[in-house]
Amino acid sequence: MDEPAENISGGSAGGGRFSEFRPGDGTSRAEAVVDRLGALYWQKTYGGQDAFECLVRTILSQNTSDKASQPAHDDLMAKYGGESRGDLAASLADADRNELAETISSAGLYNQKSEVLLAVAERVVEEYGGATAFDEYVRTADYDAVRETLLGMNGVGPKTADCVLLFAAGRDGVFPVDTHVHRIYRRLGVAPPDADHEGVRAVLEEQVPAEKCGFGHTATIQFGREHCTARNPACLDDPEACPLSDLCDQVGVYPETGEVEDPADAA
């Protein structure tokens, strides 16, 4: 199955290549889940996106859907990107905030996001000279140093930083945790029910082989959209409708009553 282009976390323009990975030996339920999802959706080695554009894309996707953030990204690139406009970071650093906010309005929270984009663009230009040198830094510098740098940028949290490390730098062992990943691995019982996003990330990056973390992230997102939704997971109507039913503890899901709650509340 081809990865859908509308998935802003990866998509057909996400770089990387499709590969096949050997299934695990069954000692890690987290790896068993990722293997199952990889067989259901895709197994892909990521990397290859421009680091600054990837950072911009992920900031635009914060707290909104791909359907809303993709047009904002396209409009931003049409106005500020492209070969005729030169370096994207320099172009954004010189942008008028109100014009930028209007350009990305479809992404929601556009006033806040425009301020974040201006701040990160200015920092990239000031510290690296532009997007090209920043891209080289993200790809080649020490992993911990790059992640610390990204997390030190205004408006950049762990998920955003990890997406840049995965989709631009192609770093193995990076498993970004968005709302789907956070919900699903606690619901499955793989991570503690009260684990925060960083707690879930720690479990997954410890238990899933490094080379499987990338497609584990994107395949989990697709599984969350198709089967394990927040309010109406497939198992409520039919346990057999879920391809992970035999691997799931259904934490916070009660098919007998039709109720669904956050795993932390269920615990």
Score class of each variant (00 low, 15 high):
Ala5Tyr: 13
Ser9Arg: 10
Gly10Ser: 10
Gly10Tyr: 07
Gly10Asn: 05
Gly16Arg: 10
Arg17Ala: 15
Phe18Val: 07
Phe21Lys: 06
Phe21Ser: 07
Arg22Ile: 00
Pro23Trp: 00
Thr27Asn: 07
Thr27Arg: 15
Arg29Cys: 06
Glu31Asn: 12
Ala32Gln: 14
Val33Gly: 01
Val34Gly: 15
Gly38Trp: 05
Gly38His: 04
Tyr41Lys: 01
Tyr41Asp: 06
Asp50Leu: 00
Phe52Ile: 00
Val56Asn: 12
Ile59Val: 13
Leu60Pro: 12
Asp75Ser: 15
Met77Asn: 14
Gly81Ser: 10
Gly81Trp: 14
Arg85Ile: 01
Arg85Ser: 03
Ala93Lys: 13
Asn98Arg: 14
Thr103Asn: 04
Ile104His: 14
Ser106Pro: 14
Gly108Phe: 02
Gln112Cys: 05
Leu117Ile: 12
Leu118Trp: 11
Glu127Lys: 12
Glu127Ile: 00
Tyr128Ala: 02
Gly129Cys: 06
Ala133Glu: 15
Ala133His: 11
Tyr143Ala: 07
Asp144Ser: 13
Gly157Leu: 10
Ala161Thr: 13
Asp162Asn: 14
Ala169Leu: 11
Arg171Tyr: 01
Asp172Gly: 13
Phe175Thr: 00
Phe175Ser: 05
His180Val: 00
Val181Ser: 02
His182Pro: 09
Arg186Leu: 09
Arg187His: 11
Ala191Met: 03
Asp194Ala: 13
Val200Trp: 00
Ala202Lys: 15
Glu205Ile: 00
Glu205Gly: 01
Glu206Met: 03
Glu211Gly: 06
Thr218Ile: 09
Ile221Leu: 08
Phe223Asp: 08
Phe223Asn: 02
Phe223Trp: 02
His227Asp: 08
His227Pro: 10
Cys228Pro: 14
Thr229Gln: 12
Ala230Thr: 11
Leu236Glu: 09
Asp237Gln: 11
Asp237Ser: 15
Glu240Gly: 08
Cys242Thr: 01
Cys242Trp: 02
Leu244Asp: 05
Val253Asp: 08
Val253Glu: 04
Tyr254Ser: 09
Thr257Phe: 03
Glu259Thr: 09
Asp262Arg: 09
Ala266Glu: 12
